[in-house]
């Protein structure tokens, strides 16, 4: 029929690559922070053993998967959600919404208030993960950027700001 066209919308390859790298690094940093930072440790201790969660964009990712094994060790488990049993799935409604979040145009609370984030799982667990992510973002980002990404920049001790930050970044890069 005239005036009709069928379109298969394409992909956003550059954004996908950017977000995949970011998610990979944040996943590794969560793993590192769980070993270095007491507050992150406490948050993970409150989660059940074997708890696994993902964060990503609906419907086709990219994702990051982080889990805590039976011994309580937190590990970044890659970017595939099909191969693991997830206890909680946190998704942004589109790759564009995830991009807004990871380019700090919107903080996590703002994204949530704008109805961009949804959770398949327990809300208390999601709140724990958001608190962990906030701490990790403070570790990874300079203050002026971190202020955009979280609700309130925390007042930390000098050791936490310097030594812990160095350790989290080194461990995230080294992957242990």
């Amino acid at each position: 029929m005239e005036h009709f066209v069928e379109i298969k919308p394409g992909r956003k390859l550059l954004k996908r690559i950017f977000l995949s790298i970011n998610l990979w690094f944040v996943g590794k940093a969560i793993q590192a922070a769980a070993k270095v930072d007491d507050e992150v440790k406490q948050e993970f201790d409150a989660l059940p053993d074997g708890f696994t969660f993902s964060l990503g964009a609906f419907p086709n990712g990219p994702y990051m998967v982080v889990g805590k094994n039976e011994k309580g060790v937190v590990k970044y488990m890659g970017s595939k959600i099909d191969t693991v049993r997830l206890d909680m799935k946190m998704s942004l409604k589109s790759i564009e919404c995830l991009f807004l979040l990871f380019t700090f145009q919107e903080s996590t609370p703002v994204a949530n208030s704008m109805d961009r984030l949804y959770v398949d799982g327990d809300i208390p667990h999601a709140c724990s993960i958001v608190r962990i992510m906030d701490i990790v973002q403070v570790y990874l980002l300079p203050k002026f950027i971190a202020k955009l990404a979280i609700k309130r920049y925390p007042k930390w001790s000098l050791k936490r700001h310097t030594w812990n930050r160095l350790m989290v970044n080194l461990r995230a890069i080294a992957g242990f």
Binding site: E6, P9, K12, R16, A57, N60, S94, E96
Partner: peptide
């Protein structure tokens, strides 16, 4: 609109008359 559907895997039919 097409841009919003990128990465979604959804096919759109557009009729503009």
């Amino acid at each position: 609109l097409i841009d919003a559907f990128k990465e979604s895997g959804i096919i759109l039919g557009i009729w503009d008359n």
